[in-house]
Design a protein around this nucleic acid. Structure first.
Length: 569
RNA sequence: GCUCCCAUAGCUCAGCGGAUAGAGCGUCGCCCUCCGGAGGCGAAGGCGCAGGUUCGAUUCCUGCUGGGAGCACCA
């Protein structure tokens, strides 16, 4: 289906060139012509402010420019009228006969409605969640998952071939601590008196008690004399199963689980280090070479480390790549990982991170640039924190201390769809205040019901129509009225929303569109009856056809948000 | 102290340099009860402050105020 604003912009561009050729407008380069729905319905369906923008370059009043453009504007078949409005807008009205044909077009596209050309033949990689398997998915992590998955869905709709990736680290101290913690719980489960550490090295989460009991059931006391390693392996497996299961509940999935360790095994990190060294971005020293006295004092002397000269790219400080112990920091494999991503040839890479990873994300970009690669293909969506509030008070989250709000808990108290919508409809740059009390209360504070109910209402009509033997087969959509067309106009905006969401990587736009679509729908549902006794059969068929199209649009919008399109509620 | 994010209606939030700044909830009033009332219609109510750029600023820039996050040889 066509993206109406693009089509209009092309036609207006032609008109401007024609006006220039005829001498009605002076010569100038064609500007970007922005077409958007006006704020008020009586101003038409789409509006162009191009004449206002051209006033200076053309040296004419905007109103005059608009008139001269329209003089050379031939109406395409889908436009019924174009008129000039002060102070210089060009307002366009869609053709009603054409709009009616779009009902059939929408039904024909079905679940692929508004799959765009913009990403055709392009590959995108979206990375999200990427939590190490040390604990269940928290509400905070959920946000990146929702943003990442929604972004992936939007990019798919925009025509991209999308891969979803999860980057994880199953080595390192935290995993060893996890293994040790499980080992202690295991010994407890065997009935031994165990003194539990009180410091951060011990994971207090109750799930480890459960894991330990299961382990006793499976293996008895066979592991009683083992060190942390088998426990770490067991905990990791259980944790990943749990994480995947939790995410699957809100329809968040991954295609690839990328193990950081593979970058060590293939030697990729050392190749990167060597490359950086050859390019002169690396030095060995006890202290960063270009830091002020205060920083140098803070860093202290722990022996010779390998530094990345990231200040050359505008960083506030150079970063350690290899510790004085000879062990790489997280930064080195992270740079290697993103080099790996770019080497895989994606046209677009998107990384969804919490805002606490801002500095790290920047350093990675500097690293990629230092390798001589184009970092513009790396896009980072930083999301602000989710603050969970209960009883009007903030609930603190800390995986290691065992105090946390898990995604599971949140879903159990609300619903998967509510979690998807409430988190997915927020702009990532804003904090989310997730009120657990409000989410528990199933009132219509929650727009998810309002949107899904539109789909349910459509489904309800078809159930009733089937029972009464009414069909939309061979319906004459030309019988549809102004109310129905108001909805069709709104439905056709979906393509523009997908385009904008994909271009700006702002998937939450879909959520607001879906709400607007529902707001357009419900009043129409109220007045446009199908099976009412006073509705003549031909009109019944046409209206039924209309609701079939409406259902397609709602299902498409809901699916784009990773939500269910229920038949009943 | 430095870096980044945010500030829009009583509350939670949209708003891609353009016309009269939107929605949900809450409040107040009204309607509908033969396809599911988690419904429909209407009202009151707002761009933190001060400059600047622009024909035009909620949007871009600077400063201020007030929130939040990050500033490891952790990951």
């Amino acid at each position: 289906m066509k993206l109406i604003p693009h089509e209009i912009a092309a036609h207006l561009g032609d008109a401007i060139r024609a006006a220039q050729a005829a001498g009605d407008l002076p010569a100038f380069d064609l500007p970007v012509i922005d077409i958007k729905p006006p704020k008020h319905a009586n101003q038409g369906d789409y509006a162009a402010s191009v004449a206002l923008a051209l006033a200076k370059t053309a040296g004419l009043p905007p109103l005059e420019i608009a008139n001269r453009i329209l003089k050379h504007f031939t109406l395409p078949d889908f436009i019924a009228a174009a008129e000039v409005a002060p102070p210089g807008y060009i307002n366009l009205r869609l053709d009603e006969a054409w709009l009616k044909t779009q009902v059939e077009a929408i039904i024909a596209e079905g679940d692929a409605l508004f799959t765009l050309e913009m990403g055709k033949g392009k590959r995108a990689l979206v990375e999200y969640v990427s939590a190490n398997p040390t604990g269940p998915i928290t509400v905070g992590r959920t946000r990146g998952g929702v943003i990442g998955d929604s972004t992936a869905r939007v990019l798919e709709a925009a025509g991209y071939t999308v891969e979803r990736e999860y980057y994880f680290n199953n080595a390192g101290r935290q995993m060893r601590n996890l293994g040790n913690s499980l080992r202690l719980r295991y010994l407890q489960a065997l009935g031994r008196e165990i003194e539990l550490p009180t410091d951060d090295s011990f994971y207090q989460g109750e799930y480890l008690i459960e894991f330990a009991e299961d382990l006793v059931k499976e293996r008895g006391d066979a592991l009683a004399n083992e060190d942390w390693q088998p426990f770490k392996e067991y905990a990791e497996k259980r944790m990943f199963d749990w994480i995947k299961t939790s995410l699957a509940r809100i329809q968040v999935k991954h295609d690839v689980f990328f193990n950081e360790n593979s970058l060590y095994e293939t030697g990729a990190i050392w190749n990167v280090l060597e490359e950086l060294e050859q390019r002169g971005y690396v030095y060995k020293a006890a202290l960063p070479e270009n830091a002020d006295e205060q920083t140098r004092a803070e860093v202290g002397g722990k022996g010779e480390a390998v530094w990345f000269r990231s200040t050359q790219f505008g960083d506030t400080a150079d970063r350690v790549l290899v510790k004085s112990s000879g062990e790489p920091t997280y930064t080195l494999p992270d740079i290697a990982y993103h080099k790996n991503k770019l080497d895989r040839g994606y046209d677009l890479c998107v990384n969804c991170l919490g805002s606490d990873h801002l500095v790290q994300a920047q350093v990675v970009k500097y690293g990629v640039r230092a390798l001589g690669m184009d970092d513009s293909r790396l896009n980072v969506i930083l999301n602000q924190m989710v603050k969970t509030v209960r009883d009007g008070k903030e609930v603190r989250m800390s995986t290691r201390r065992g105090v946390f709000d898990t995604l599971d808990e949140l879903i159990d108290q609300t619903s998967a769809d509510a979690v998807r919508y409430l988190i997915g409809s927020r702009s990532p740059t804003n904090h989310v205040l997730f009120d657990l009390d409000l989410a528990v209360a199933q009132t219509n504070d929650n727009p998810v019901y309002y949107i899904q109910n539109a789909h349910v209402r459509c489904a309800g009509i078809f159930r009733e129509a089937a029972a009464r033997g009414v069909s939309d087969e061979g319906a004459d959509v030309s019988l549809l009225g102004a109310d129905e067309l108001r909805f069709v106009r709104k439905a056709l905006e979906l393509g523009e929303v997908i385009e904008a969401a994909a271009r700006t990587l702002e998937a939450h736009r879909v959520a607001f569109y879906a709400l607007e679509l529902a707001q357009t729908f419900h009043p129409i549902y109220d007045s446009v009856r199908v099976l009412h006794s006073e509705v003549p059969p031909p009109l019944q068929g046409a209206r039924l056809r209309f609701y079939r199209a409406a259902q397609v649009v709602f299902r498409r919008a809901l699916t784009l948000m990773g939500m269910n399109a229920p038949e009943y509620m």
